[in-house]
Nucleic acid binder design. Structure first.
Lengths: 233, 233
DNA sequence: CGGATCTTTGATTTCCTTCAATTTAGGTGG
DNA sequence: CCACCTAAATTGAAGGAAATCAAAGATCCG
């Protein structure tokens, strides 16, 4: 296989859309020189809770599950990251150990950019810096929403909400099938409930013709009604 | 009353400890010139969910409750802010409406610094910028912890955790009494449960001599055991 | 084809919410 | 300073949502 690290960031399409769009060509070259890219197979760990990260990752391809492991060992999924997303930056900026684990769900190509380079960019490029801040603040806003949902909504309401969010983030194909392959366990981990409870709620939504199920494929039939449920009145 | 706005930021003790410690005297003067300080009585609203904020606030004195209102109208407390804390910055940086409401719990003095000044500082002072990022990332880390707690811990475990956190943030007096005056409702809003459930769990902790209750005063008797419960094994 | 993993269903139990009623506390004006 | 009024806190009882436990069925993959 060709050396993954030798590919140039300035010709990477992803850099046009995410935080890297605020960098100069020189800055992109700096990243190219020292980045390390790697392919992760489904199930491979990208970084682990309590690890100290030497840099953040930019996802070039694939879907990554980001979760915390609870006191009883049960995983709580915080979010799913996909092409163009940046992961691990929180721990780098806070100079703390990672508080989450990141595992590839599908085959993933991720490039690691060292902390030094990140700090250097932040110190010399204010708009880049601003973008990082905006990213952190957006994530914080979503985390706050999630906190309220967990505290105040039922499992069914949260499931509807998660389905909507997955639609927005990963889209539907021509048959309205959700483009992220999740086990029931992962879906439960996202909703914050037991697998069995999740399955019952899925069955419920199916009974009301809001979704259709074929194995792990979830077909979204009535997004409006799902949104109504997610709102939770 | 003297004009609150005329007090100089460079002689403000609080600026020595929080994000403002990374500013030059000139920069502090810029803030002094345009800031607007205001006293809020207990119960007064500092900003409201859905408001667009013209700037963030620095708390000079007092305790502020920051919460989201749920779909059924029930408030979910996200955090309590105190002297030296910065609030409302998320909404300013994201250029979104506030996703929380901030209400004074005790008499509060808060200074509002306009978005323009904030952006200007971020663009011209990289260490300040770095501090803001660190603050956002810290808050994000705590939010992620909170998400896991809500999804996986029992009410009693979460209550123990909240008590520990309140100890750390607001301290105890010489009699080991928690230095934040909360109604049972607010405490419930923080733990993410119904007021009645909270009361029962408080009674439980009291029965086991982990705490003592005198009205709203909570005396912490056995912090080690509280920590053990909070860990939730 | 066979074993392992994932999914589903049923039964039971636990935790928590909700509703209703009572007690207590805090604040105010006489 | 006390009586009164309102808001807050507490307790009890009942119901419901979700977790857990156990077992059966389906699916995937080598």
């Amino acid at each position: 296989m060709a050396d993954l690290d030798s590919f140039e960031c300035k010709s990477c399409k992803i850099g046009l859309t995410n935080i890297f769009s605020h960098l100069t060509l020189d800055e992109l070259d700096k990243i190219t020189i020292q980045k390390h890219c790697k392919i992760f197979k489904p199930g491979d760990t990208i970084y682990r809770q309590t690890n100290h990260l030497s840099g953040f990752f930019c996802i070039e391809k694939g879907i990554v599950k980001i979760y915390k492991t609870g006191p009883k060992g049960r995983p709580q999924i915080i979010r799913f990251a996909k092409k163009g997303d940046i992961i691990g930056y929180r721990s780098v900026l806070s100079k703390e150990a990672a508080c989450t684990t990141a595992v590839a769900l599908t085959e993933t190509l991720a490039c690691q950019v060292s902390s030094n380079v990140l700090f250097d960019l932040i110190y010399h490029n204010a708009s880049f810096s601003m973008e990082i801040m905006k990213m952190a603040c957006d994530e914080l806003g979503e985390a706050n929403d999630y906190i309220m949902d967990l505290a105040q909504k039922t499992v069914k309401e949260r499931l509807a909400e998660v389905l909507i969010k997955l639609c927005e983030d990963f889209g539907l194909d021509e048959d309205n099938i959700l483009q992220i392959p999740l086990t029931r366990e992962d879906l439960a981990g996202m909703v914050g409930t037991a697998t069995e409870s999740l399955i019952r709620q899925l069955a419920d939504l199916k009974k009301d013709d809001l979704i259709e199920l074929k194995g792990r494929k979830i077909k979204i039939q009535n997004i409006a009604e799902l949104k109504r449920i997610a709102a939770g009145f």
